[in-house]
């Protein structure tokens, strides 16, 4: 299917918008989501965007796939071909993406099994509690801790009353 000549600017605008869009959606997905499962999904999208960008780097108008088929086998002309190197690179980076994704999902299963939640905020909180417990240290920034050496002054009557009837 040799591509008929179409206006290149639209194609360029489309493809690059697609690639960059995927990357940004991926990164935004990871940053915005609280659920760690969704983050892994978004990461996969970002990886896919990166791969598309790489393949676009090797594309040439009117070029044919870098595989010698039937008639090309005899003539062995490889001049009008797309650049094979980015394709080789993308092969590797797709499999890297899947490798990382598999490990991430294994960790998610374990986290869910141990902490029982998938929300990053709770996972972080539980982790910090564990770290502080293992280091036998009480975290300075946690709310229960009184600031500095002096214990917190007891709340005045009004707030105490309001607190316990809340």
């Amino acid at each position: 299917m040799n591509p008929i000549e179409m206006n290149p600017v639209a194609l360029q605008w489309l493809l690059y918008f697609g690639a960059m869009g995927l990357i940004v959606i991926g990164i935004a997905g990871v940053v915005l989501h609280q659920n760690i499962f969704r983050m892994v999904l978004a990461l996969a999208i970002a990886e896919a965007g990166g791969n598309l960008l790489l393949v676009i780097a090797g594309f040439r108008f009117g070029a044919v796939a870098p595989i010698l088929q039937d008639d090309a086998l005899q003539t062995l002309n490889t001049s009008n071909m797309v650049d094979p190197v980015p394709q080789a690179m993308v092969l590797t980076s797709i499999v890297i993406g899947v490798g990382i994704q598999a490990l991430a999902l294994a960790l998610i299963i374990r986290i869910h099994q141990r902490y029982g939640t998938l929300n990053m905020r709770e996972v972080h909180a539980c982790m910090m509690v564990d770290i502080n417990k293992s280091a036998a240290v009480d975290d300075l920034l946690s709310a229960q801790q009184p600031r500095g050496r002096r214990p917190l002054p007891s709340p005045p009557e009004s707030t105490a009353k309001r607190a316990n009837n809340e």
């Binding site: 990164i27 935004a28 990871v30 940053v31 983050m39 905020r121 972080h124 909180a125 300075l140 920034l141």
Partner: peptide
């Protein structure tokens, strides 16, 4: 130093990567 530790205690550091990028 308390302010700097805020960065390390943030529950989701990916935001800082986005800012840096």
């Amino acid at each position: 130093s308390a302010a700097t530790q805020m960065l390390f205690n943030s529950f989701h550091p990916a935001l800082f990567l986005l800012l840096a990028a």
